[in-house]
Structures are given as structure tokens and as C-alpha cells.
Nucleic acid binder design. Structure first.
Lengths: 346, 346
DNA sequence: CTGAAAGCGCTTACAG
DNA sequence: CTGAAAGCGCTTACAG
């Protein structure tokens, strides 16, 4: 009894390419040809096929269509956390890029856990994705063996480890951070607080490297006071509360990640300090609220669209030209020195 | 020449179920049975199959596996915008839920455009998703015809229109808003500013309904001053700037959407007003920074996990028991009256 | 308990 | 220019 129930009304109601072929009085192979727009088909046949497609409301099943090819028209994206608006913007940017290239984006999250990152990538490989974009968690790029075995191009973005053998796109973390220090030094600041998270992330290490290099060049090598915190808001808050309670504050603060910016401002508010008079404040990463506080908070702005665009172009390039040495791209952050920054005491 | 190139190294390297069968000396059908864990298989055959799976590193192709069934084990989620952390949390919640039920989540965005919402849903239907979760944009639920035709269960969440014929999950927008007004009235506020966005969204209408009902019940019917703005930060800023410039402010403000909360606080800062002394402030939706300002800002907190959990449970129920009248669920917001709220003048 | 055969919805050579 | 046949990687009856 192969499905004799007429009242079932399941997905079988969707017309297939065979239904179209029957209605247009041609073979499925011919329908396939006009659908893909390849090869030559007699004009009136093509017309009848298009008519039949319209009449039945036929839509191709992209997953089935790709089954016979080795690869599907899907690109997988792995981000650490959807709840972080920075990664939300990353997802949005790649969704748009994929759409305009005829790919579908499947975005998944690693929940900031390296082992989950690996399993998520494996799951994407099970789907035979054409390519991968990954914001990696740690030093070792995830499940390298499987990715290499299957020749799936992967582009690493944002927190890219040093030597991976994969293409990567990062911002000029060191130089942008150095520019902040130079700017503060130029304004006359002689003691600067720098809030950084665990140096496991390459982004943090790079930013610290830029800070130190610029401080040294400005003759302020000993004047940078580093406060280390965890990555989340709560731990940044705790670290800043402790530091501010100790008194004897520098005249400027540079937060190397956005929860720290929040934490610094909270202490400023709690203690009735004034920005920038008592403390100039700059944060890495721009967040919506930073432009609406009084004063607005200076920021190092990561060019998300450009990061995504660069990664996407490279991925498309790899798809068209497999093989070749891995490439490394660097895009430039914009610095917006808003009113939270001024010479000491002003 | 069917692929004679030994150096190709494409996806064909992935072992298939036939490779496993060959190595284990059984048929693919038998491998399939042990893989799915159904039916009975002789113990030593099963053992050899498992061994072969391990040896080859075989992983099933879930998309191909579902081809013969009418439906794939994918659930589609449509949100208006990935960049909004509220929706980011929604995506994160459903990703977890899907994972624990053996489904994969494919999240897409409608970019706040109704026509794109429709095309995104069509694309998901092309993938033969098992079910849909949608945060709808407008009054008319999207592409109803296709969804009904294909009997794909859909659960609407957050901004749910009134009569849709689909399952839906919303928060108690009206009651939560009423509770805020009652609280402010109870503290002695006699004039309250309410910032609302366009009433096209059912959430806005519901919140306004609650506000008005509570004001009336408290004998403050004429004392609620409504300021209407667009949905984005910029337009909320403009509207608030104009209102604050006009002077003669109420003693409390209730923002019905989070950009308005930001806009109100910005005017407060700009004009050197003090919260809560000059103005008590409450915002609908809790955002990270609201707990770190001084004072922390009172909020109506939407229970995202509960919204997602309720919607997921209902979707799974529909999958198991198709048909039946649509259900409507309401979950309760939590009110956190932080220090931004006090009696007038305190 | 097992496997040959047919099928899911398409595409891909290939013979005509 | 067209269609029959085989195939993508799996599952599903069904005969043995």
C-alpha cells in the first residue's frame, strides 16, 4: 500500500520535477536543463516547461538538487555566541553575502567552548557544506584533519591563531591599540590604565602588544597599568571595582574589550567621577549605547562589513581555485575619539 | 571516464554506507538498521558494523538520510534581525533546544522586511523543514498558503498577530505594562511620560492597552503623556530631544521599547537631570548596560528561555500530533524595579 | 535476521 | 535538441 490515503495532505503535495515534466510533455532531464539554464532547449518546449512550473507552483528542492554533486550550496558559519551583538552583526553580514552569491548560510554557535566548536564543524561537514567561516576559540584550529581530508575551504576570522595553514582575516589589533596609546600620550596622559582579558585570545595578545610598543615608544613604558579580568561583564566589574577602590587612579583608561568599557564606566558613575575630567575613557569595540551616554565614549570601531566581505571574497576564491598557500588579510579599525577623551584634568 | 583521477581528493573521500557495508561484509540495508538502532541484527554483525564505522570514520549524511522521508530533521527560525541581542538570545535558545531534540536549527533573518520574511520562509520550505518558528513582522502571517499546503507546523512568537490560525507564544505585554503604571502611581507619580513606537506591532498595541487601562483604573487617565517615535535609536532620540526641549516634564517615564530607554537617558544626561530625583525611569526589555549605569535602570524583563521553551514544546507536540485547533500561550514578564524608580522628588 | 530492489528529488553523461 | 538510464547517499518495504 504505497500511500493510498488521499486525505493525507503531507509534503507529497509538493510538485516534483516529474510532475512538471509530465505536464509539459517532456522528460525530467529536459526540465532540469531549462531550470539550470544550461544547454539548448527548443523554444516551445522551454515555454511549456515554464508554464508548467508556474501552474504547479514548482520550486526546486536545493538539497536534493545538490545530492549528486559532491558539495551542497551551503556555507557554514561558526560564531562563539549569538547573543553578542558583534557576532550578531557578523552573522547578518554573511547572510547577505551568501544570498548575493547563491549560497545559503547556516550559522551555528560554539558557545565559547572549544569542544563544541569541533562538533559543530563536524556537523556542518556532515551537511557537505561548500565552505566554512569560523571565529575560532583557541590556539589550535578546530578539527583540522576532517576539514583537510574533505578539502573544504575554511576562512578563520576575528580571533585567528598564528600558524594554521588556513586563510584568515583579522583587524589591525596591535596598530589600532598603539594608536590609542599614542593619542592619549599626545594629549599629555602620563599614566594609563589598560583593561585586558585573558591573553589566550590572540586578539587580546595583539592588542596588548600594540599598547606596550606604543607606550615604550612614547617613553611611558612603566606608566601603563594593566588590569586583567575574565571575559564576561561580571568578572570585568569585579576587577574594576577592586582597582578603583584602591585609589590613586591614572588619568586615562583603555578597555581592550567591551565588557571592560562597561565596567570602567560603572565605577566612574558609582564614585561620582567625571569623564573626561577625572578619567579619559576609550573602549575597543563600538556598542550602541556608547554614542548616547554623556559624554559619548571614544571607541575603536571594527569594520564588520569589511571583515565579512574580505573573508567571503577569499572563500569564493578558494571555491573557484582550490589549493595554494594560505592567505592572511588585515583590515583597519576606525578610531573615533569622542568627547570621553581630553587632556588630563579637562 | 568516471573520475579516474586519484589525486582529486574531493568529498568523494568521505566513506558512504556502502563502504561500511563492504568492510563489515553485510548489506547497506543492514548497516542502515544498526545505524538507526531499529530492528534486530545479529550481535556479531552489529559488532563488525560498529567496528567498520569506527575504522572508516563514517558519519551519516543527515540530508541524504532524510531524502526518502517527506521531511528533514531541520527546524527553521525566522527572526527580524540578528544584530538585535534580544533576537540573538532567541536564536541561542532555540539552537540549544533543537540540539537536545535531535533537530538542526537553521536561523535566517527577515531584515524587518515583510516581503523578505515571505521569501525566507519559502526558502526554508524548499528545504523541507519539519517545522517553523517565526517572529512575524506584521498583521498577516507570512505565506500562509504554502505553509498550510505543505502541512508544516509553524509557531509564531513575540510579535504575534491576533487571528492567524497558527500556534503562538507571547508575553503578557498588557499586564506587565499595567503593572509598571500601577507601581509608578502607587509611588505617587501623577504625570507619566510613555514612549511608544508605531502601533503596527501588536506588542506596542498591547503594551499601550495595558498602560491606558492601568492609568484609568488609577484615576490618571489624562495624566499619561504618549510620545510616539519610530523603532530605531535615531528616531527615538529625535522624538525625545524634542519632548525634553519643550520642558514641563512629568516625574516618571516608561519606555515601551529599548531604544526609547536609551533615548530618554541620553536626554537626562544632556540636561543634567538626576534619576530618579527629577525623573523615574522604567524600560521595557532588559539590556546589559541597564544594570551597570548609576543608578541601574528598572526594567520589564522578557523571559526569553521560557518563550523559546514554550514554543519548542508546542512545535514538537504538533510534529507528533498534527491537526487540531491553534493554541495561544502567554508567558509572564518579570519586573525589576531598580533604583531608577522612586517617589517623585526623591 | 538479511539483502536485493525500488525509491526520495534531482543531475549527469551519453546515445540517438 | 531530447530522453532513458544510472547515479548521489541513504531508507523502506518485502521476500526469503
Amino acid at each position: 500500500m504505497p500511500d493510498p490515503d488521499p486525505a493525507r495532505g503531507t509534503a507529497s503535495e509538493r510538485p516534483t520535477i516529474h510532475d512538471v515534466a509530465r505536464l509539459a510533455n517532456v522528460s525530467p532531464a529536459t526540465v532540469s536543463k531549462v531550470l539550470r539554464g544550461v544547454g539548448a532547449v527548443k523554444a516551445d518546449n522551454a515555454a511549456r516547461i515554464h508554464q508548467a512550473v508556474r501552474e504547479l507552483g514548482f520550486r526546486i528542492d536545493p538539497l536534493a538538487a545538490n545530492l549528486r554533486r559532491s558539495r551542497r550550496s551551503i556555507v557554514g558559519l561558526v560564531v562563539p555566541d549569538f547573543r553578542n551583538p558583534f557576532f550578531g552583526s557578523i552573522v547578518a553580514a554573511f547572510e547577505r553575502l551568501a544570498e548575493s552569491s547563491g549560497y545559503r548560510l547556516v550559522a551555528v554557535s560554539s558557545s565559547e567552548k572549544p569542544e563544541r566548536e569541533g562538533s559543530q564543524i563536524e556537523a556542518l561537514l556532515d551537511w557537505r557544506v561548500a565552505g566554512l567561516i569560523v571565529v575560532p576559540m583557541g590556539e589550535t584550529p578546530p578539527v583540522q584533519a576532517s576539514i583537510r581530508d574533505q578539502n573544504v575551504p575554511m576562512v578563520l576570522i576575528d580571533r585567528v591563531p598564528d600558524e594554521t595553514g588556513f586563510d584568515k582575516v583579522a583587524v589591525n589589533n596591535a596598530e589600532a591599540s598603539a594608536a590609542v596609546i599614542r593619542h592619549l600620550a599626545g594629549l599629555g596622559h602620563r599614566r594609563i590604565l589598560v583593561a585586558c582579558a585573558s591573553p589566550e585570545r590572540t586578539t587580546m595578545r595583539e592588542r596588548m602588544r600594540g599598547v606596550m610598543a606604543a607606550a615604550e615608544a612614547a617613553g611611558l613604558a612603566g606608566a601603563v597599568e594593566v588590569v586583567a579580568c575574565g571575559h564576561d561583564v561580571a568578572s570585568a566589574m569585579a576587577a574594576m571595582a577592586e582597582r578603583f577602590a584602591a585609589g590613586n587612579l591614572p588619568t586615562a583608561a583603555f578597555a581592550l574589550f567591551s565588557p571592560a568599557t562597561l565596567a570602567i564606566l560603572r565605577e566612574v558613575e558609582r564614585r561620582g567621577l567625571a569623564v573626561p575630567r577625572d578619567l579619559s575613557v576609550v573602549g575597543f569595540d563600538d556598542v550602541e549605547w556608547m554614542q548616547v551616554t554623556h559624554p559619548p565614549i571614544a571607541a575603536v570601531i571594527q569594520p564588520i562589513e569589511e571583515i565579512a566581505g574580505t573573508a567571503w571574497t577569499q572563500l569564493m576564491h578558494r571555491l573557484a581555485n582550490p589549493g595554494g598557500a594560505p592567505c592572511s588579510f588585515e583590515v583597519t579599525c576606525r578610531l573615533d575619539f569622542r568627547a570621553s577623551v581630553a587632556p588630563p584634568g579637562q
